[in-house]
Structures are given as structure tokens and as C-alpha cells.
Nucleic acid binder design. Structure first.
Lengths: 191, 191
DNA sequence: TCACGATGTAAACGTACGTTTACTTGCTGG
DNA sequence: CCAGCAAGTAAACGTACGTTTACATCGTGA
């Protein structure tokens, strides 16, 4: 028999990364409580015990996965001039990355995961967002942005209704674009 | 020893109702997966096996509880002229009833409960809402109303941030009122 | 070379859950 | 008065989970 070439030689960093990526997917799909370590590690192709070894448990893995997902800048990398169109396109059509938003609010069912999500949402999303928006009422405008985003995601991915699971209704899309654009412009919807 | 007066004589209907009310509370607080039958029945003061006996299982109990919570009209009982102010007051300040919205989206973590929530949300909330709003684009406007409501609840109760858990910021409140009012008026925000 | 730590695995453990079963208690119609 | 059914209970069952443990395997520095 030919010498077996192991396609995945022993590499702790690579294994850690594989677990982390699988965790991002599974946590985003199923939420914290419904996601199982057996599912995550199976998707990563590694043994289940490695989660405890490398991350210290399920909650710590969730925290690491959420933080990694939030590492990619979520909104503040877009040009303000066309923010509305671009952010709706990113949310509605996807851009290939795993969005951290489903992870954020699907985690809320579990009390421990919720407190982690709260802290990270505040530190990594809301504060940078308010800074990026700027101005006196930046906090309120960031909150509005967050509320609409969460509502959109909840409505679209969490409770997808008939006729809404696919493409977004053009009128609804235009309203979303206007709202998002108004928030970064001056807080008022221009119509 | 004096004769013991049982404060809760055998009464299947009363027991059923006690379970149903406890279920509404616990499901709203913890979501479907995190809520346990033992917790619900303990709060109702009855044996755990009665859930299977009276409702046929946890999922059926959830369906019954959600349907009962949705029985109270959620939005369409308010006068359209002051809809914005009143609906925000109901959402932000509460009106004593158990709101079905937390149940709705906290259920979304579980796949089976989610499909139940989807169907009931559509049948019992969105369709009556669109009918109540009326007009050609009633569907889109109902969707906007639902998105903002879900976003508000998610942001407020699910991921309560520092400074947002208590009273709602006056500016944010005004924005919410305007948005809600505009949806029932003509779909456009008047400013 | 080879012992030893790093890496990975399989199996077992303890726990908590939803559900079912066997049983007890209380009421009521004839 | 009492048989029979409704109502309620306690305990057990089967399962799935996160975690831990004991063991196997690989690579590498002295």
C-alpha cells in the first residue's frame, strides 16, 4: 500500500482555526444552546474533546467565535455617501462572509451567552459605530441603525415569512436604504 | 388535626389554565429550548406529567401558549390617529399583559418552535395588521411595522445595553413614534 | 536515536431533559 | 354505599449533552 499522506498534519493552530470557523457557522445557524460541540467538531473534522482543551469549554468557544466574526468590520468600512444602498446590499444579498448578527441575537436565548453577546455588541459594534457616525446624537443614531438591522435580520432569517425568505420586496428595500442613509447623513429621512 | 382545606380542588380546567399561564411567562423569559417543563409545572404548582397529558408535549404547549398570548390583540386595537404614541407606550412601558413578542422571537432558536412561531405570526399578527392598515402597499407597511417592533424588542429586552435597559431615550422614542405613526398614516415619515 | 511533550482519539461519566408508566387519591352516579 | 373513572402524583426510562479521563500517536531537541 502506498504511503498515506495525511492531508491534515498535526497542527494545533490549524485545528484551533478549523474549530473556530465551524463554530461560527454552527452558532450562526442554530444559536448557542442548540449548537452542540459534537456538531461543531464533526464539521471541523476533529475530536470533540479539543474544544475543552483549546478553548476551555463551549461558552469560551462562543466568545472566541463571536469575537472573530466581529473582527471583520461590519458597517464602518462603507463610504457614507452610499451607505444605504451598500449596507442593505450586504445584509440582503450577503457578501460571502459569515455575518455576526445572527450569532449575536440567536445567542440571546441562553443567559450566559447573552451577557457575552451584550458586551461584545457594545464594545465592538455600537461604540465604533457611534464614533464613525459622529455628532451629538451619534448614540441615538447608532441605536436606530442597530434596531433596524436587528429587526431586519430577525424578520428575514429568524421568522422568515412566505414571500420574504427570498428577495426583499423592492419597496421595503427602498425604505431600508433610505432609513440607513438618513441615519448616517443627518438623522432625518430625505424623501 | 383540623381538616385540611385544599385550596386547589381537583379541577382539570383550572389546572390546564395554570399551566398555560405559567408557560407564557417562562417561554417569554427563557425561550422555547431553555424553558423546561419542570420549571413551568413547578410555577403552576402541578405535576410535570400533566403537560403531556393535557397538551400532548412541550411543543404543543408552546403552540397553545403562544396562541393564547396572541389572542389579545396586539396592535390593531389602537386608534390610528395616535397610533405612534400609544404603541410605543405599550411597548416601552408595558401594559400589564405578557407580550407575545418575546415569545415569538425567543422561540426562533429552536427549529420546531420557529416554524410554529412563523405560522402564528403570519396568521395572527401580520395578516390582521395588513388588513387593518389597508391600502395597496399594506403588506410592505405591515412588514416595516413588524421589523421595527422586532428590532426594538431585540435591542431592548434581548440585548439590553447600558443606558437602554431602563427608560427609552427621548430622541429615540420620538423617532419610534414618528415611524410607527407614518406607517399607519401613509407610509411616509412626516417631519 | 529516543525519551518526552504536544497532539489527537475513543470511551466513559455525570447531569438534565421530555416523556412514559404505575400508582394513589378524590369525586360522583346509580 | 361503592364501583369506576377522572385527576394528580412519584418514580423511572431513554436520550443527548458538555466535560473529563485514559490512552494512542506523532514530531523533535538533546
Amino acid at each position: 500500500m502506498a504511503t498515506k499522506i495525511d492531508p491534515r498534519p498535526r497542527d494545533a493552530d490549524r485545528t484551533r482555526e478549523a474549530i473556530l470557523q465551524a463554530a461560527q457557522q454552527v452558532f450562526a445557524e442554530k444559536g448557542f444552546a442548540a449548537a452542540t460541540i459534537r456538531d461543531i467538531t464533526a464539521r471541523a473534522g476533529v475530536n470533540q474533546s479539543l474544544v475543552s482543551r483549546y478553548f476551555g469549554g463551549k461558552l469560551k468557544l462562543f466568545e472566541a467565535a463571536l469575537e472573530a466574526a466581529l473582527d471583520a468590520r461590519l458597517m464602518t468600512d462603507l463610504p457614507k455617501a452610499e451607505f444605504g444602498k451598500l449596507i442593505v446590499a450586504r445584509f440582503a444579498d450577503g457578501d460571502g462572509r459569515v455575518s455576526p448578527l445572527p450569532m449575536l441575537f440567536r445567542a440571546a436565548a441562553d443567559a450566559e451567552a447573552r451577557s457575552v453577546a451584550q458586551r461584545l455588541l457594545h464594545e465592538r459594534v455600537l461604540e465604533p459605530l457611534a464614533q464613525w457616525i459622529g455628532g451629538a446624537d451619534a448614540g441615538v443614531r447608532a441605536a436606530r441603525l442597530m434596531m433596524i438591522s436587528l429587526g431586519f435580520f430577525t424578520y428575514r432569517e429568524q421568522l422568515p415569512l412566505a414571500g420574504f425568505a427570498g428577495a426583499v420586496d423592492p419597496d421595503l428595500r427602498r425604505w431600508l436604504e433610505d432609513e440607513f442613509q438618513a441615519i448616517v447623513d443627518n438623522g432625518h429621512v430625505r424623501r
